[in-house]
Design a protein around this nucleic acid. Structure first.
Lengths: 337, 337
DNA sequence: AAGCTGTTTGACAACGTTGTCATTTTTCGT
DNA sequence: ACGAAAAATGACAACGTTGTCAAACAGCTT
């Protein structure tokens, strides 16, 4: 609306009849300002459409107002979900969201992270898997006293903010979804054993089997590694086994895709002959043919809350609650309708 | 290596025995500094590991050092290619790369762009398709005197930097690739007619047919709209036609994917019974089964050059050469090996 | 009412750079 | 070799905030 030339604190101070320092205090939520003045200043600022000058703030306060998300995950869908959530939270509070890729392929990636931190002033860090599991990295960040948020960490850290889903419950929910649809002979394709979340999903699988009093002997457990290839291989294993599996729970979408392709090549119809569900709700899964029923986590909201809590921590210099669990949702599609 | 506490221009100036203003000039590539002093200052700065303070620069110069990429393209692959190229060029010159999505669905997206530009100081703008074709948007950016780079614009603008590939030559190259592999009865699946690039690709197709003295009557031209569905439909049309097409050139990867799925469902083998090539080299195409032969453009390099030229323009305040054409490459995969 | 708190407020100097403009040095034409 | 013009350099004041610290004020207790 009213976008005049650039206003300064000075302008607000004059109009409100207070000192510039008081205005500054109001905008920083600093203590020791009478509520009455606070409201007055806020009112004037709103009327005039004042926006603080970030560079000046940075220069004077030696804060950067930059939060950085370190990732090493080729899944663009997941990343952009995180970025969007981060950005939303940041723009509310006048912070900047930056994303930086660290390739864990590169064995010195820890060094490049530390390099980055010393080179560029950063007020807070967000880590996503698999980096959120790297203790050495987390320790270095702690050492520098930089507030840190972990997204879906394998092990929750007291010293960080943790946002996550309950992987075991999610695995169980997915399994029960298959059972409800009449499948009694199931297969579980696991991910890498080193991946905590995968093990938890599997635990959920078995707990559903037990709770529904199905025969463990009717189940097939196939070891995969999250790759499409391993989903492919899993189907081979499956077709050689004597047990007549009708429902497959793949530990992630890539393996589900591999399994479906293998099934189609073998002349089977999905879902008529065999139903397959995945995990992650990836873009590939959505546009696969047939589209894959998959488990979705509210990654954008998770990133947003994680960022908000991180900013609170930075601004107030104290961390309150730091464990936040989010609900999951099954996206029902044609691969298991 | 030597990461002492934060250095200032002052430190460099003292060590080099010059005034701070001279150091400032060196770092801004300003004229009127003797080469000898320039080298001296640069040397000292390198030895000490000096890095200019961005906030102070912004505050004093009233520049933001921010370049913004406005996009509206759901193709994450393409976007991250642009972002990576942009970032590389930016970090070399101390600029910041920001990406902002404008949904052209939203009919007031032009307003939100302008809102953004007035709200946030921006030194330069990069537009990618389809926004790089929006004349009204470009005009508004010009009006504000903000330097602007267009990636693959339908029509090159004198007032902007343009980076692009030769769509017609690319279309021709792809067609000749099919012809070289012995296909004489071809189909071309076009994109939307409103999309300039698509028409150019088709022109390339026909020019290859002509140059190789093939019968136009043996060719099938099917109208598509870039969607997977329309690739699907294209195959239906194809199987009804009497002409025995063995090579299909889809105007983009999505339509190629649709065509392949339809062919597989009809019991045909790809590439044995029918060969299919796409355009874009998307991640989907790469991981389709079979992987799709597709035309790749060096999008990362294009974005990088586009950004470098934009920065030159901003820094020197004059735009030199402004048309940059890039070569393309056929990524040969199983759908037409 | 004076004295003692603790809270609220403001004056003024940072913060690290660039813009302006005056001054010094170099270059060039004669 | 001289002056005039051009090029190179530097002193100092911005830029819009926040940090520091001292002053003013309010709420107590005596």
């Amino acid at each position: 609306m009213t976008d005049e030339k650039n206003l300064t604190i000075q302008d607000i101070a004059e109009k409100a009849g207070v000192s510039i320092k008081t205005v500054s205090r109001v905008f920083n939520n600093a203590p020791n300002v009478r509520q009455q003045k606070r409201d007055l200043v806020l009112g004037v600022a709103r009327d005039l459409g004042y926006r603080p000058n970030v560079s000046a703030r940075q220069l004077a306060s030696k804060r950067s107002f930059v939060l950085i998300h370190f990732y090493d995950n080729p899944n663009m869908d997941y990343l952009s979900g995180i970025y969007d959530g981060m950005r939303e939270a940041c723009s509310e509070k006048g912070y900047y969201a930056v994303a930086e890729r660290l390739s864990s392929q590169n064995h010195s990636y820890k060094d490049s992270l530390l390099d980055y931190l010393t080179r560029t002033p950063v007020d807070g860090v967000i880590l996503s898997p698999p980096i959120s599991d790297d203790k050495a990295v987390i320790r270095e960040i702690e050492k520098r006293n930089i507030p840190c948020s972990l997204i879906s960490p394998g092990i929750k850290k007291r010293s960080c903010i943790n946002v996550f889903i309950d992987e075991k419950t999610a695995g169980r929910k997915m399994t029960e979804f298959l059972i409800e649809r009449g499948h009694t002979k199931l297969a579980f394709i696991s991910g890498l054993d080193t991946h905590t979340a995968s093990a938890q999903r599997e635990a959920g699988f078995w707990s559903a089997i037990e709770a529904n009093e199905l025969q463990c002997n009717d189940m097939v457990r196939i070891g995969g590694d999250f790759s499409r290839q391993s989903g492919f291989a899993a189907f081979e294993t499956l077709s050689k086994s004597k047990s007549k599996v009708t429902g497959v729970f793949a530990g992630n979408d890539e393996m589900a895709i591999g399994t479906i392709i293998a099934a189609l090549r073998a002349g089977m119809k999905v879902p008529e002959d065999i139903s397959i569900v995945g995990f992650d709700d990836s873009a590939f899964a959505r546009s696969m043919w047939p589209p894959i029923t998959s488990l979705a986590q509210p990654i954008e909201e998770m990133a947003k809350l994680s960022t908000q809590k991180l900013i609170d921590w930075i601004d107030t210099k104290e961390r309150a609650e730091n464990h936040f669990e989010f609900p999951t949702k099954i996206m029902v599609r044609d691969s298991c309708p």
